[in-house]
Design a protein around this nucleic acid. Structure first.
Length: 426
RNA sequence: GGAGAGAUGGCCGAGUCGGCUGAAGGCGCUCGCCUGCUAAGCGAGUGUGGGGGGAAACCUCCACCGAGGGUUCGAAUCCCUCUCUCUCCGCCA
Protein backbone atom coordinates (compact mmCIF):
# COMPACT_ATOMS: atom_id res chain seq x y z
CA UNK A 1 0.00 0.00 0.00
CA UNK A 2 1.13 3.50 -0.72
CA UNK A 3 0.95 6.11 1.99
CA UNK A 4 -2.24 8.15 1.70
CA UNK A 5 -0.25 11.35 2.11
CA UNK A 6 2.05 10.31 -0.71
CA UNK A 7 -0.84 9.64 -3.07
CA UNK A 8 -2.50 12.92 -2.10
CA UNK A 9 0.64 14.88 -2.88
CA UNK A 10 1.78 12.92 -5.94
CA UNK A 11 -1.36 12.19 -7.88
CA UNK A 12 0.25 12.63 -11.28
CA UNK A 13 3.20 10.44 -10.35
CA UNK A 14 0.83 7.69 -9.22
CA UNK A 15 -1.20 8.15 -12.38
CA UNK A 16 1.96 7.73 -14.44
CA UNK A 17 2.97 4.59 -12.54
CA UNK A 18 -0.45 3.08 -13.09
CA UNK A 19 -0.22 3.82 -16.78
CA UNK A 20 3.20 2.17 -17.03
CA UNK A 21 1.73 -0.88 -15.37
CA UNK A 22 -1.15 -1.03 -17.84
CA UNK A 23 -3.62 -0.63 -15.06
CA UNK A 24 -5.76 2.07 -13.57
CA UNK A 25 -7.48 3.22 -10.44
CA UNK A 26 -10.05 5.88 -9.84
CA UNK A 27 -7.89 8.67 -8.55
CA UNK A 28 -10.61 11.26 -9.01
CA UNK A 29 -12.81 9.49 -6.52
CA UNK A 30 -9.78 9.18 -4.31
CA UNK A 31 -9.09 12.88 -4.45
CA UNK A 32 -12.69 13.86 -3.86
CA UNK A 33 -13.21 11.42 -0.98
CA UNK A 34 -9.95 12.44 0.61
CA UNK A 35 -10.84 16.11 0.55
CA UNK A 36 -14.34 15.50 1.85
CA UNK A 37 -13.07 13.29 4.60
CA UNK A 38 -10.53 15.80 5.80
CA UNK A 39 -13.09 18.54 5.81
CA UNK A 40 -15.42 16.50 7.98
CA UNK A 41 -12.51 15.47 10.14
CA UNK A 42 -11.81 19.10 10.97
CA UNK A 43 -15.44 19.62 12.00
CA UNK A 44 -15.53 16.46 14.08
CA UNK A 45 -12.34 17.34 15.85
CA UNK A 46 -13.45 20.80 16.85
CA UNK A 47 -16.77 19.43 18.09
CA UNK A 48 -15.02 16.76 20.08
CA UNK A 49 -12.72 19.38 21.50
CA UNK A 50 -15.68 21.42 22.66
CA UNK A 51 -17.32 18.36 24.15
CA UNK A 52 -14.15 17.48 26.05
CA UNK A 53 -13.90 20.98 27.49
CA UNK A 54 -17.56 21.21 28.46
CA UNK A 55 -17.62 17.71 29.95
CA UNK A 56 -14.86 18.90 32.20
CA UNK A 57 -16.98 21.87 33.21
CA UNK A 58 -19.95 19.63 33.90
CA UNK A 59 -17.85 17.52 36.18
CA UNK A 60 -16.75 20.58 38.14
CA UNK A 61 -20.25 22.02 38.34
CA UNK A 62 -21.65 18.76 39.60
CA UNK A 63 -18.90 18.56 42.15
CA UNK A 64 -19.81 21.97 43.54
CA UNK A 65 -23.52 21.18 43.35
CA UNK A 66 -24.42 23.51 40.47
CA UNK A 67 -27.10 22.73 37.92
CA UNK A 68 -25.57 21.59 34.62
CA UNK A 69 -28.68 20.42 32.83
CA UNK A 70 -28.47 22.98 30.03
CA UNK A 71 -24.92 22.04 29.21
CA UNK A 72 -25.72 18.34 29.36
CA UNK A 73 -28.58 18.88 26.97
CA UNK A 74 -26.38 20.84 24.61
CA UNK A 75 -23.67 18.21 24.72
CA UNK A 76 -26.19 15.52 23.94
CA UNK A 77 -26.86 17.40 20.71
CA UNK A 78 -23.17 17.78 20.02
CA UNK A 79 -22.73 14.08 20.62
CA UNK A 80 -25.39 13.25 18.06
CA UNK A 81 -23.85 15.54 15.48
CA UNK A 82 -20.45 14.00 16.10
CA UNK A 83 -21.87 10.54 15.61
CA UNK A 84 -23.45 11.51 12.30
CA UNK A 85 -20.29 13.13 11.03
CA UNK A 86 -18.25 10.16 12.19
CA UNK A 87 -20.46 7.84 10.20
CA UNK A 88 -19.96 9.70 6.97
CA UNK A 89 -16.27 9.91 7.74
CA UNK A 90 -16.08 6.15 8.23
CA UNK A 91 -17.78 5.63 4.89
CA UNK A 92 -15.31 7.89 3.13
CA UNK A 93 -12.46 6.22 4.98
CA UNK A 94 -13.61 2.82 3.72
CA UNK A 95 -13.76 4.10 0.16
CA UNK A 96 -10.23 5.46 0.49
CA UNK A 97 -8.82 2.33 2.06
CA UNK A 98 -10.38 0.13 -0.59
CA UNK A 99 -8.91 2.30 -3.32
CA UNK A 100 -5.50 2.39 -1.69
CA UNK A 101 -5.43 -1.38 -1.23
CA UNK A 102 -5.92 -1.74 -4.97
CA UNK A 103 -3.22 0.66 -6.07
CA UNK A 104 -0.03 -1.23 -6.93
CA UNK A 105 3.45 -0.23 -5.86
CA UNK A 106 5.36 2.48 -7.74
CA UNK A 107 8.03 0.82 -9.89
CA UNK A 108 11.62 1.67 -9.02
CA UNK A 109 13.30 3.93 -11.55
CA UNK A 110 15.63 1.10 -12.59
CA UNK A 111 12.65 -0.99 -13.65
CA UNK A 112 12.42 -0.83 -17.44
CA UNK A 113 9.26 0.76 -18.76
CA UNK A 114 7.34 -1.55 -21.02
CA UNK A 115 4.00 -3.09 -21.91
CA UNK A 116 4.37 -6.80 -21.33
CA UNK A 117 6.87 -9.64 -21.03
CA UNK A 118 8.29 -8.84 -24.46
CA UNK A 119 9.72 -5.65 -23.00
CA UNK A 120 11.53 -7.39 -20.15
CA UNK A 121 15.28 -6.80 -20.27
CA UNK A 122 17.82 -9.60 -20.29
CA UNK A 123 20.39 -8.72 -17.64
CA UNK A 124 22.78 -11.65 -18.08
CA UNK A 125 22.92 -15.13 -19.54
CA UNK A 126 24.77 -17.85 -17.65
CA UNK A 127 25.82 -21.06 -19.36
CA UNK A 128 24.88 -22.20 -22.82
CA UNK A 129 21.81 -24.15 -23.87
CA UNK A 130 22.58 -27.81 -23.34
CA UNK A 131 23.68 -29.69 -26.48
CA UNK A 132 22.22 -33.04 -27.38
CA UNK A 133 23.10 -35.39 -30.21
CA UNK A 134 19.72 -37.08 -30.03
CA UNK A 135 16.16 -35.91 -30.08
CA UNK A 136 15.30 -34.55 -26.65
CA UNK A 137 12.15 -35.52 -24.82
CA UNK A 138 9.92 -33.28 -22.77
CA UNK A 139 10.20 -33.79 -19.03
CA UNK A 140 6.67 -35.20 -18.75
CA UNK A 141 7.56 -37.96 -21.20
CA UNK A 142 10.87 -38.62 -19.47
CA UNK A 143 9.13 -38.74 -16.09
CA UNK A 144 6.33 -41.01 -17.23
CA UNK A 145 8.68 -43.32 -19.13
CA UNK A 146 10.85 -43.66 -16.03
CA UNK A 147 7.67 -44.15 -13.95
CA UNK A 148 8.68 -41.41 -11.56
CA UNK A 149 5.88 -39.02 -12.58
CA UNK A 150 2.27 -40.05 -12.97
CA UNK A 151 -0.05 -37.31 -14.16
CA UNK A 152 -2.77 -39.75 -15.10
CA UNK A 153 -3.20 -41.16 -11.61
CA UNK A 154 -2.78 -37.73 -10.05
CA UNK A 155 -5.73 -36.45 -12.03
CA UNK A 156 -7.81 -39.36 -10.78
CA UNK A 157 -6.88 -38.60 -7.17
CA UNK A 158 -7.69 -34.93 -7.48
CA UNK A 159 -7.94 -33.51 -10.96
CA UNK A 160 -5.79 -31.83 -13.56
CA UNK A 161 -2.60 -30.06 -12.53
CA UNK A 162 -1.66 -32.01 -9.47
CA UNK A 163 1.65 -33.82 -9.15
CA UNK A 164 2.27 -37.43 -8.22
CA UNK A 165 5.86 -38.58 -7.88
CA UNK A 166 7.18 -42.07 -7.37
CA UNK A 167 10.48 -43.56 -6.30
CA UNK A 168 13.52 -41.66 -7.50
CA UNK A 169 11.25 -38.82 -8.63
CA UNK A 170 9.82 -38.32 -5.17
CA UNK A 171 13.30 -38.61 -3.76
CA UNK A 172 14.64 -36.09 -6.25
CA UNK A 173 12.03 -33.58 -5.20
CA UNK A 174 12.80 -34.16 -1.51
CA UNK A 175 16.55 -34.01 -2.13
CA UNK A 176 16.24 -30.70 -3.91
CA UNK A 177 14.31 -29.25 -0.99
CA UNK A 178 17.03 -30.26 1.45
CA UNK A 179 19.82 -29.24 -0.89
CA UNK A 180 18.44 -25.75 -1.41
CA UNK A 181 17.67 -25.11 2.23
CA UNK A 182 21.09 -26.37 3.26
CA UNK A 183 22.86 -24.00 0.89
CA UNK A 184 20.83 -20.99 1.96
CA UNK A 185 21.23 -21.69 5.66
CA UNK A 186 24.91 -22.65 5.66
CA UNK A 187 26.30 -20.47 2.87
CA UNK A 188 23.97 -17.48 2.69
CA UNK A 189 23.06 -16.86 6.31
CA UNK A 190 19.33 -17.55 6.19
CA UNK A 191 17.41 -18.87 9.15
CA UNK A 192 15.22 -21.83 8.35
CA UNK A 193 11.53 -21.53 9.19
CA UNK A 194 8.61 -23.86 8.68
CA UNK A 195 5.49 -21.69 8.56
CA UNK A 196 1.75 -22.40 8.48
CA UNK A 197 0.52 -23.33 5.02
CA UNK A 198 -2.87 -21.76 5.67
CA UNK A 199 -3.15 -18.06 6.43
CA UNK A 200 -5.87 -15.62 7.35
CA UNK A 201 -7.20 -12.78 5.23
CA UNK A 202 -5.18 -10.12 6.97
CA UNK A 203 -1.84 -11.80 6.34
CA UNK A 204 -2.49 -12.34 2.67
CA UNK A 205 -3.75 -8.77 2.32
CA UNK A 206 -0.52 -7.55 3.87
CA UNK A 207 1.61 -9.17 1.18
CA UNK A 208 -0.69 -7.88 -1.57
CA UNK A 209 -2.40 -10.96 -3.04
CA UNK A 210 -5.63 -9.56 -1.62
CA UNK A 211 -7.95 -7.82 -2.17
CA UNK A 212 -7.32 -7.73 -5.90
CA UNK A 213 -6.47 -11.32 -6.73
CA UNK A 214 -8.77 -13.46 -4.64
CA UNK A 215 -9.71 -15.58 -7.63
CA UNK A 216 -6.11 -16.82 -7.84
CA UNK A 217 -6.30 -18.35 -4.38
CA UNK A 218 -7.78 -21.46 -2.83
CA UNK A 219 -10.07 -20.45 0.01
CA UNK A 220 -11.15 -22.77 2.80
CA UNK A 221 -14.87 -23.27 2.89
CA UNK A 222 -16.40 -21.99 6.11
CA UNK A 223 -13.22 -20.19 7.14
CA UNK A 224 -11.76 -16.86 6.20
CA UNK A 225 -8.50 -18.71 5.56
CA UNK A 226 -6.53 -19.37 2.40
CA UNK A 227 -4.04 -21.98 1.22
CA UNK A 228 -0.79 -20.13 0.70
CA UNK A 229 0.21 -19.41 -2.91
CA UNK A 230 3.80 -18.94 -1.70
CA UNK A 231 5.68 -19.04 1.62
CA UNK A 232 6.20 -15.32 1.13
CA UNK A 233 2.83 -14.81 2.77
CA UNK A 234 3.35 -16.52 6.14
CA UNK A 235 7.05 -15.67 6.36
CA UNK A 236 6.67 -11.96 5.63
CA UNK A 237 3.93 -11.87 8.23
CA UNK A 238 6.22 -13.30 10.91
CA UNK A 239 6.96 -9.72 11.89
CA UNK A 240 3.59 -8.07 11.25
CA UNK A 241 2.84 -5.38 13.82
CA UNK A 242 6.36 -5.57 15.20
CA UNK A 243 9.02 -2.96 15.74
CA UNK A 244 12.36 -4.48 14.83
CA UNK A 245 15.48 -3.35 16.54
CA UNK A 246 17.92 -1.70 14.15
CA UNK A 247 20.77 -4.07 14.89
CA UNK A 248 18.90 -7.29 14.16
CA UNK A 249 18.49 -6.11 10.57
CA UNK A 250 18.82 -7.43 7.98
CA UNK A 251 16.82 -10.56 8.86
CA UNK A 252 16.97 -13.47 6.42
CA UNK A 253 14.53 -16.38 6.41
CA UNK A 254 14.31 -19.39 4.16
CA UNK A 255 11.27 -21.62 4.14
CA UNK A 256 10.08 -24.69 2.38
CA UNK A 257 6.39 -24.81 1.61
CA UNK A 258 3.94 -26.28 -0.80
CA UNK A 259 2.21 -23.57 -2.84
CA UNK A 260 -1.39 -23.63 -3.98
CA UNK A 261 -2.63 -21.60 -6.91
CA UNK A 262 -5.93 -21.72 -8.72
CA UNK A 263 -4.25 -20.66 -11.98
CA UNK A 264 -7.48 -18.97 -12.95
CA UNK A 265 -7.35 -17.78 -16.52
CA UNK A 266 -4.48 -19.98 -17.63
CA UNK A 267 -6.54 -22.85 -18.99
CA UNK A 268 -4.71 -23.32 -22.24
CA UNK A 269 -1.19 -22.75 -20.91
CA UNK A 270 1.34 -25.41 -19.98
CA UNK A 271 -1.28 -28.10 -19.75
CA UNK A 272 1.33 -30.83 -19.59
CA UNK A 273 4.11 -31.44 -17.14
CA UNK A 274 5.30 -29.83 -13.97
CA UNK A 275 5.43 -26.23 -15.11
CA UNK A 276 1.99 -25.06 -14.07
CA UNK A 277 0.40 -26.99 -11.22
CA UNK A 278 -2.22 -26.18 -8.62
CA UNK A 279 0.16 -27.54 -6.00
CA UNK A 280 3.93 -27.32 -6.12
CA UNK A 281 6.84 -27.08 -3.74
CA UNK A 282 8.99 -24.04 -3.41
CA UNK A 283 11.87 -22.78 -1.32
CA UNK A 284 11.35 -19.13 -0.53
CA UNK A 285 13.84 -16.60 0.78
CA UNK A 286 12.51 -13.56 2.61
CA UNK A 287 14.46 -10.54 3.78
CA UNK A 288 13.68 -7.65 6.09
CA UNK A 289 16.03 -4.78 5.43
CA UNK A 290 16.77 -1.19 6.28
CA UNK A 291 15.44 1.03 3.49
CA UNK A 292 18.86 2.28 2.42
CA UNK A 293 20.14 -1.27 1.85
CA UNK A 294 17.22 -2.91 0.12
CA UNK A 295 18.51 -2.64 -3.44
CA UNK A 296 21.85 -4.14 -2.46
CA UNK A 297 19.89 -6.84 -0.68
CA UNK A 298 17.93 -7.50 -3.87
CA UNK A 299 21.19 -8.13 -5.73
CA UNK A 300 22.48 -10.60 -3.15
CA UNK A 301 19.08 -12.24 -2.91
CA UNK A 302 19.10 -12.81 -6.64
CA UNK A 303 22.65 -14.07 -6.44
CA UNK A 304 21.61 -16.51 -3.70
CA UNK A 305 18.97 -17.96 -6.00
CA UNK A 306 21.44 -18.12 -8.90
CA UNK A 307 23.83 -20.08 -6.70
CA UNK A 308 21.41 -23.00 -6.76
CA UNK A 309 21.18 -23.01 -10.53
CA UNK A 310 24.96 -22.79 -10.83
CA UNK A 311 25.43 -25.63 -8.34
CA UNK A 312 23.03 -27.76 -10.37
CA UNK A 313 24.84 -26.68 -13.55
CA UNK A 314 21.65 -25.58 -15.25
CA UNK A 315 21.85 -22.89 -17.96
CA UNK A 316 19.77 -19.84 -17.16
CA UNK A 317 19.36 -16.15 -17.67
CA UNK A 318 18.40 -13.25 -15.48
CA UNK A 319 15.85 -10.76 -16.67
CA UNK A 320 14.56 -7.52 -15.21
CA UNK A 321 10.79 -7.36 -15.40
CA UNK A 322 9.39 -4.29 -17.10
CA UNK A 323 6.69 -2.13 -15.53
CA UNK A 324 3.92 -3.88 -17.45
CA UNK A 325 4.95 -7.33 -16.21
CA UNK A 326 5.77 -6.37 -12.63
CA UNK A 327 3.82 -7.94 -9.77
CA UNK A 328 1.34 -5.84 -7.83
CA UNK A 329 3.44 -5.27 -4.70
CA UNK A 330 6.88 -5.16 -6.27
CA UNK A 331 8.96 -2.10 -7.11
CA UNK A 332 11.58 -4.15 -8.91
CA UNK A 333 11.82 -7.80 -9.87
CA UNK A 334 14.44 -10.07 -11.40
CA UNK A 335 13.22 -13.32 -12.83
CA UNK A 336 15.56 -16.27 -13.21
CA UNK A 337 14.72 -18.34 -16.24
CA UNK A 338 16.12 -21.82 -16.70
CA UNK A 339 16.79 -23.39 -20.07
CA UNK A 340 14.23 -26.04 -21.07
CA UNK A 341 15.68 -28.00 -24.00
CA UNK A 342 12.49 -29.73 -25.14
CA UNK A 343 10.64 -26.49 -25.70
CA UNK A 344 13.79 -24.60 -26.55
CA UNK A 345 12.89 -21.73 -24.27
CA UNK A 346 13.88 -20.20 -20.98
CA UNK A 347 11.23 -20.69 -18.28
CA UNK A 348 10.80 -18.79 -15.05
CA UNK A 349 12.14 -20.73 -12.10
CA UNK A 350 12.61 -17.91 -9.60
CA UNK A 351 11.35 -14.42 -9.05
CA UNK A 352 13.26 -12.04 -6.77
CA UNK A 353 11.61 -8.79 -5.75
CA UNK A 354 12.05 -5.71 -3.66
CA UNK A 355 8.75 -4.49 -2.27
CA UNK A 356 10.30 -1.51 -0.51
CA UNK A 357 7.88 -0.43 2.22
CA UNK A 358 4.72 -1.47 0.34
CA UNK A 359 4.13 -4.69 2.27
CA UNK A 360 5.60 -3.30 5.47
CA UNK A 361 3.03 -0.51 5.50
CA UNK A 362 0.18 -2.97 5.12
CA UNK A 363 1.63 -5.30 7.73
CA UNK A 364 2.87 -2.50 9.98
CA UNK A 365 6.43 -3.84 10.10
CA UNK A 366 8.69 -1.16 11.45
CA UNK A 367 12.22 -0.50 12.54
CA UNK A 368 13.60 1.55 15.41
CA UNK A 369 16.97 3.18 15.06
CA UNK A 370 19.22 3.78 18.04
CA UNK A 371 19.19 7.33 19.33
CA UNK A 372 16.43 8.36 16.96
CA UNK A 373 12.88 9.25 17.77
CA UNK A 374 10.07 7.32 16.23
CA UNK A 375 10.02 4.39 13.88
CA UNK A 376 10.11 3.86 10.15
CA UNK A 377 8.91 1.10 7.86
CA UNK A 378 11.32 -1.66 6.93
CA UNK A 379 11.76 -2.87 3.38
CA UNK A 380 10.75 -6.42 2.53
CA UNK A 381 12.13 -8.62 -0.23
CA UNK A 382 11.64 -12.15 -1.31
CA UNK A 383 12.73 -14.58 -3.95
CA UNK A 384 12.26 -18.20 -4.86
CA UNK A 385 15.29 -20.24 -4.23
CA UNK A 386 13.94 -22.14 -6.22
CA UNK A 387 10.62 -23.48 -7.42
CA UNK A 388 11.22 -27.19 -6.83
CA UNK A 389 8.87 -28.77 -9.37
CA UNK A 390 10.26 -26.66 -12.15
CA UNK A 391 13.77 -27.55 -11.02
CA UNK A 392 12.89 -31.22 -11.36
CA UNK A 393 11.55 -30.52 -14.83
CA UNK A 394 14.75 -28.68 -15.76
CA UNK A 395 16.94 -31.48 -14.44
CA UNK A 396 14.99 -34.14 -16.28
CA UNK A 397 15.29 -32.28 -19.54
CA UNK A 398 18.84 -31.00 -19.26
CA UNK A 399 20.30 -34.22 -17.80
CA UNK A 400 18.46 -36.69 -20.01
CA UNK A 401 20.44 -39.33 -21.87
CA UNK A 402 19.82 -41.10 -25.12
CA UNK A 403 18.56 -44.27 -23.40
CA UNK A 404 15.87 -42.28 -21.57
CA UNK A 405 17.68 -42.26 -18.23
CA UNK A 406 18.60 -39.09 -16.40
CA UNK A 407 21.94 -38.31 -14.79
CA UNK A 408 21.84 -37.01 -11.25
CA UNK A 409 23.55 -33.61 -10.99
CA UNK A 410 26.87 -33.92 -9.20
CA UNK A 411 25.84 -31.66 -6.31
CA UNK A 412 22.72 -33.71 -5.64
CA UNK A 413 24.37 -37.13 -5.44
CA UNK A 414 24.94 -36.97 -1.67
CA UNK A 415 21.29 -36.10 -1.22
CA UNK A 416 20.22 -38.95 -3.49
CA UNK A 417 22.11 -41.52 -1.45
CA UNK A 418 24.87 -41.67 -4.02
CA UNK A 419 22.54 -42.44 -6.92
CA UNK A 420 24.27 -41.61 -10.23
CA UNK A 421 21.51 -42.12 -12.74
CA UNK A 422 17.74 -42.29 -12.57
CA UNK A 423 16.49 -45.14 -14.71
CA UNK A 424 13.37 -47.20 -15.05
CA UNK A 425 13.73 -49.78 -12.30
CA UNK A 426 10.63 -51.78 -13.21
C1' G B 1 -15.90 -30.06 22.65
C1' G B 2 -16.57 -28.61 28.44
C1' A B 3 -14.88 -25.24 32.72
C1' G B 4 -12.15 -21.08 34.26
C1' A B 5 -8.44 -16.80 33.95
C1' G B 6 -6.58 -12.97 31.15
C1' A B 7 -5.34 -9.16 26.96
C1' U B 8 -2.91 -1.72 29.30
C1' G B 9 3.07 2.12 26.34
C1' G B 10 9.79 -1.11 23.73
C1' C B 11 9.18 -4.65 28.14
C1' C B 12 7.11 -5.64 33.24
C1' G B 13 3.08 -3.81 35.84
C1' A B 14 -0.91 -0.31 38.70
C1' G B 15 -5.56 1.62 37.58
C1' U B 16 -10.57 2.80 43.56
C1' C B 17 -18.04 3.28 43.44
C1' G B 18 -16.99 6.06 35.08
C1' G B 19 -14.71 12.56 35.37
C1' C B 20 -7.11 16.66 35.48
C1' U B 21 -4.79 8.92 33.82
C1' G B 22 -2.11 9.17 27.43
C1' A B 23 -2.19 6.50 31.42
C1' A B 24 1.22 5.64 38.51
C1' G B 25 5.65 2.66 39.58
C1' G B 26 9.72 -0.15 37.69
C1' C B 27 12.98 -1.82 33.68
C1' G B 28 15.07 -0.43 29.18
C1' C B 29 16.64 3.56 26.03
C1' U B 30 18.49 8.90 24.95
C1' C B 31 20.93 13.36 26.64
C1' G B 32 23.53 15.82 30.63
C1' C B 33 26.18 15.68 35.46
C1' C B 34 29.34 12.92 38.56
C1' U B 35 33.12 9.14 39.01
C1' G B 36 41.06 6.63 37.67
C1' C B 37 38.27 2.53 34.27
C1' U B 38 33.97 -0.55 34.93
C1' A B 39 29.86 -0.68 38.10
C1' A B 40 26.85 2.36 40.94
C1' G B 41 24.65 7.34 41.67
C1' C B 42 22.05 12.15 40.35
C1' G B 43 18.97 15.26 36.86
C1' A B 44 15.97 15.71 32.48
C1' G B 45 13.63 13.33 28.54
C1' U B 46 11.45 9.00 26.17
C1' G B 47 4.33 5.70 22.61
C1' U B 48 1.63 5.48 17.84
C1' G B 49 -1.55 7.49 14.08
C1' G B 50 -4.01 11.71 12.16
C1' G B 51 -5.70 17.18 11.43
C1' G B 52 -4.08 22.43 11.64
C1' G B 53 0.10 26.10 12.15
C1' G B 54 5.61 27.01 11.34
C1' A B 55 11.41 27.34 6.91
C1' A B 56 12.69 24.52 11.16
C1' A B 57 13.47 23.21 16.48
C1' C B 58 8.58 23.01 17.72
C1' C B 59 3.40 24.40 18.98
C1' U B 60 -1.71 22.97 19.04
C1' C B 61 -5.98 19.84 18.53
C1' C B 62 -8.22 14.83 17.87
C1' A B 63 -8.00 9.57 18.33
C1' C B 64 -5.90 5.12 20.36
C1' C B 65 -5.47 0.86 27.09
C1' G B 66 -6.89 -6.91 22.07
C1' A B 67 -10.99 -5.76 17.85
C1' G B 68 -15.89 -3.97 16.84
C1' G B 69 -20.50 -2.09 18.69
C1' G B 70 -23.58 0.05 22.86
C1' U B 71 -24.88 3.09 27.42
C1' U B 72 -23.36 8.23 29.04
C1' C B 73 -22.55 15.25 28.96
C1' G B 74 -18.06 12.13 29.79
C1' A B 75 -15.53 5.06 29.32
C1' A B 76 -9.01 1.82 30.09
C1' U B 77 -12.99 1.66 33.79
C1' C B 78 -20.19 -0.34 32.82
C1' C B 79 -22.95 -3.65 28.88
C1' C B 80 -22.88 -6.80 24.26
C1' U B 81 -20.32 -9.48 20.25
C1' C B 82 -15.83 -11.32 18.35
C1' U B 83 -10.51 -12.65 18.27
C1' C B 84 -6.31 -14.32 20.66
C1' U B 85 -3.37 -16.22 24.97
C1' C B 86 -3.01 -19.22 29.42
C1' U B 87 -4.75 -23.26 33.03
C1' C B 88 -7.72 -27.72 33.90
C1' C B 89 -10.82 -31.79 31.68
C1' G B 90 -12.04 -34.60 27.19
C1' C B 91 -10.32 -36.14 22.29
C1' C B 92 -6.50 -36.87 18.83
C1' A B 93 -1.31 -37.32 14.96
Amino acid sequence: MLEIKFVRQNLSLVQEALKNRNTSADLEIFQKSDEDRREILAQVESLRHRRNVVSQQIAEMKKSGDDADDLVKEMREVGNTVKELENSMTKLGDVLRKLLLRIPNIPHNSTPIGKDEKDNRVVRVIGNPTNFDFEVKAHWDIGEDLKILDFERASRITGARFPLYFGAGAKLERSLINFMIDIHTTKHGYKEVLPPFIVNRESITNTGQLPKFEEDLFKLQGWDFFLIPTAEVPVTNIHQNEILDEDILPVYYVAYSPCFRSEAGSYGKDTRGLIRQHQFNKIEMVKFSKPENSYDELETLTDNAETILKALELPYRVIALCTGDLGFSAAKTYDLEVWMPAQGVYREISSCSNFEDFQARRGNIRLKRKGQKGTELVHTLNGSGLAVGRTVAAILENYQQIDGSVKVPEALKPYMGGMEVIRDEN
